[in-house]
Structure formats: C-alpha cells, structure tokens
Amino acid sequence: MKLTKFAMAAALLTSIAFTSCKPKDSEIKANVEAALKADMKMANTVVDVNDGKVTLSGECTDAECKAKCESTAAGVKGVKTPVINNLTVAAPVITTPPPASTATVLDAATQQKVKDGLKDINGVTVDFTADKAVIKGTVTPANRMKIMQILASAKVQSDVSGLMDKK
C-alpha cells in the first residue's frame, strides 16, 4: 500500500516537472496569435490549443492565406505538428447583373443588333445618343411597327419623332 502511494506521488511529481519544462497551452495560443497578427489577412484566425496541438478555424480571404496561417502556426515554439487547419476560404464576391429590360446600356453589341434589324427596312437611318436610338426616315405603318418591335426586342429606347409616314 505504501509503495502504491509513493508511486502515485512520484508519477504526479514527474508529470508536474515534465509539464513545467514545455510551454503551456495558453502560452502557445498567445504566441501563435501574435505570429498571425503580423499579417492583417491572418489576424482574425481563431486559435485553439490542446496539449500543444493547434487547431485553426475561421475564414480566410483565399487559399494562399489559409496555407500561410498553417505554416506560421507550425513554426511557433511548442506547437505539435501537423497543425489542424479548419480554416475556410471565403467565396468570391459575385456581382449580380441588373434586371433585364430595366436598364438600357447602348453598347456596341446592342447598337449592332439594332442596325442588323433595320438593315432590311429601306429609307430609314439610325443614330445613337447615350441611351436612345434616334430613328429617321419615311416608312409604311407596317414597317413602323417592325422598327418598334426590333427596338423592343433589343431593349432599346427610341426617339422616332423624325420618322414620317409614307403617303
């Protein structure tokens, strides 16, 4: 019985002595965080340390940042490798296009579409302002409607004040 108690005490002492000669988890955590703070991109990484094993979590802006966080943490004294890297990479920002048929941008392709459509209608010219197609000429009522349909399908606003009816 005495021997058992002695053994337990010895084991306890050994473990205290052993622990004291390597950095505590809290120290490792502070050191890893300090190392990551050197780079703004890595500053928000969440660091957890358990018995020298480091787990990184949170969100990185890109894959390069994720790898750098891991190698930086691995280089800190007292960190057991491999480092558990649970960092996620943020999804790229997707810009949504404006709703169809509401905004009209008269780019070259749109202008070409209008010109393509009007090519077969005789006696009509088209010029473009910043946001409108200015149609001039003399047309039959049927062709006037055709012109308006061409403009509508290309989603182009128009000025047809110079478009006259064929007598």
Binding site: R144, M145, A152, K155
Partner: peptide
C-alpha cells in the same frame, strides 16, 4: 405612331 417612347414592350 408609338412615338411617345414611354413603353418598352419586350414581349416574345
């Protein structure tokens, strides 16, 4: 004459 330019009828 559909000249007012106040309607964009984009119907197919």
């Amino acid at each position: 004459n559909m000249a007012s330019g106040d309607l964009m009828m984009n119907i197919d």
